[in-house]
Amino acid sequence: MFNIPIHSFYMMTFVVILLITGSLIRWRLQVKNPQTDYLELKQRIQSWWWMIGILFGILLAPTTVSIIFFALLSFLALKEFFSIMPTRQADRRILLWAYLAIPLQYYWVATNWYGMFLIFIPIYVFLFLPMRAVFIGETKGFIRSLGTIHWAVMLSVLCVSHIAYLLQLPVKNEQAGALGLVLFLIFITQFNDVCQYIWGKTLGKHKIIPKVSPKKTWEGFIGGVITVTLISGFVAPYLTPLTMVQGFVAGTLIAISGFVGDVVISSVKRDLAIKDSGTLIPGHGGLLDRIDSLIYTAPLFFHFLYYLHY
């Protein structure tokens, strides 16, 4: 089918079936309780259809198109960061330079220049932005501004670009292809979000970090980690070069770091006293609200995989 490697094709079909099930359940709920307003649930599911549709379309397109798409994702995420975080008027030019790091970073991805891809942001951008700021000459608030800006660039450009680089790794699992890695990462990350939510809803009692996220509980977290670890171990050999045991470790890594990514972005929003980071995705909030865990899981999964197999 469309020349999709067979395991990736099964995975995509499985996700579509999940979505159809979700839509049917929502529809049944609405028919059963016509008075209740399911608008948010409806919006959420509709947005999922859009996101999955766009993601699958992009993954099936030529690799360059996929890379450009992830560059766009970085741009939208960085823009969301810059729009909610405090920055000075004097920082405008520095922000513009920070945006320019995106095409360069994805150029390294597209040309498969691994060394540059790794060090460009933590070394070159990291050293360049303060220099540019010095030439502007505003020293009041200098530390806070430069710290904030570099942090945002690391999270939304360096971390997100790791997803794109997965597509550039030599294919070691012929039946999954390059897109198998991306499908695995994104599916396990989102599955973890859902598992932690469901375990928390059903068993949740002991709060884990009440000051940041009052709804997060130990039960949800542990339940999520166990479920995701198991599922990941069984799925990994089909979609990645990882063995089953390595898959278990990858699952634990993704489950824990996904949780951390989620609460890190929650802390940012709590600091700024806002509920969502934007309105880009109806029913979900902003882009950062959706990819918060992925920001953390992408580089960690990438380097785990790279260390073991490349």
């Binding site: 810059f82 729009s83 909610i84 975080m85 405090p86 920055t87 000075r88 008027q89 009041k140 608030g141 501004s145 700024l272 006293a273 806002i274 969502d276 980071s277 934007g278 309105t279």
Partner: peptide, 11 residues
């Protein structure tokens, strides 16, 4: 406004 915090008071 979601972006209301993005202004630095010093400015």
């Amino acid at each position: 406004c979601m972006t209301r915090q993005s202004v630095v008071k010093d400015d």
